[in-house]
């Protein structure tokens, strides 16, 4: 197990190197003069800048260096905690991102809870009553959940629960430690909207996993042993299909982090993803790079943990 953890950690390194490289190269995709872009000017501002000022900018940004040197300088800065200065707020990018990070994590974690609470009972019902009404209902829910884009689902839910019924706020945030009740009221809609698609995906996966398990020889053997049916459903079929689903749950966390961009914008949720979008609208490139890097690194880390968890839980791969 320790061996595996170590080798898995080592595998993360090349992946993270390429991730940082992609994030770094994003900048060179931006059309226009990179000097102006990185300094936060529009193309029309070139006239207002004297040649001395321009050269100073080039020098300050290090753009007179070859690109691989710049990459390593940038990477070194990232490691030292110097993620640049946000062009809009003039504050360090890392500080800005860290202040927003908890909100994103709360949202993703709540959405994961929604996912699990919906997917587990639905998939068990669907598999137990295959091709009967509970199965059809769960599967209709699942395919709809996959097909309805989360921003439209969000709009409809806001329309119904905020505007029409007035039960839940449509926008805003409250700190979970200062105002826990307010926090709960604010997070319900975003968490449901964010979790719906993942719940649908997981329901489908768990159901087909359970059906596959139920067709295995060892389930027939369990019946031949005379074990109670509930025991066979849970201890045999569900448990084994959940183990197989752990990796899928890990991938769904990626969907949640990516989907949070839309949900945070829609519900005015002050997280990293909302900050990323604000950065995009105001062409604040250091902030964009930082936010993308934070989200990607979070996902890589979560996947690493999920993978180790899977190795820990599944006896078939535990010792190899």
């Amino acid at each position: 197990m320790l061996n595996y953890a170590a080798s898995r950690l080592l595998q993360v390194i090349p992946v993270m190197v390429i991730v940082t490289l992609i994030v770094f190269l994003l900048m060179s995709l931006v059309p226009g003069d990179p000097v102006l872009v990185l300094a936060g000017f529009g193309p029309e501002d070139r006239q207002g800048i004297s040649q001395e000022q321009y050269d100073a900018l080039v020098n300050r940004l290090g753009l007179d260096q070859p690109i691989h040197v710049r990459y390593f300088q940038w990477l070194g800065n990232i490691f030292r905690g110097d993620w640049g200065i946000s062009l809009t707020s003039q504050r360090p990018v890392l500080t800005e991102l860290l202040s927003r990070y908890p909100a994103t994590i709360y949202l993703a974690a709540s959405a994961m809870l929604v996912t699990l609470f919906m997917a587990i009972p639905l998939s068990i019902l669907a598999a137990r009553f295959q091709n009967k009404i509970p199965d059809y209902s769960a599967m209709s829910f699942a395919v709809l959940g996959l097909s309805i884009p989360n921003f439209w689902l969000g709009l409809i839910l806001i329309l119904v629960f905020s505007l029409h019924l007035g039960w839940l706020p449509s926008i805003g945030y409250a700190d979970p430690f200062d105002q826990p009740l307010e926090f709960l009221r604010h997070i319900i809609l975003p968490a449901v909207v964010l979790g719906a698609a993942s719940a649908a995906q997981l329901t489908r996966y768990l159901r087909s996993g359970m059906l596959e398990q139920l067709g295995e020889d060892y389930i027939r053997m369990a019946y031949a042993k005379g074990l109670p049916e509930l025991l066979i459903m849970f201890k045999y079929a569900f448990r084994n299909s959940l183990i197989a689903a752990i990796t899928v749950i890990g991938l769904e966390i990626g969907q949640l982090l990516g989907g949070s961009t839309i949900v945070e914008v829609l519900f005015g949720w002050p997280g990293v993803a909302k900050m990323l979008l604000d950065g995009i609208y105001s062409r604040d490139f250091p902030l964009i790079q930082g936010a993308v890097l934070v989200l990607a690194a979070t996902y890589v880390l979560v996947n690493l943990l999920v993978d180790l968890l899977y190795r820990w839980i599944d006896p078939r791969v535990r010792f190899s």
């Binding site: 992946v15 390429i18 991730v19 992609i22 931006v30 969907q255 982090l257 990516g258 996902y299 890589v300």
Partner: peptide, 24 residues
């Protein structure tokens, strides 16, 4: 596969958003 892993390391729609943000 390492390159694909790196592309997959970007959660969900994030890579698309970042690319469009950069390219316009």
């Amino acid at each position: 596969m390492r390159l694909m892993d790196a592309l997959l390391a970007f959660p969900g729609r994030l890579l698309a958003i970042a690319l469009v943000a950069a390219m316009g």
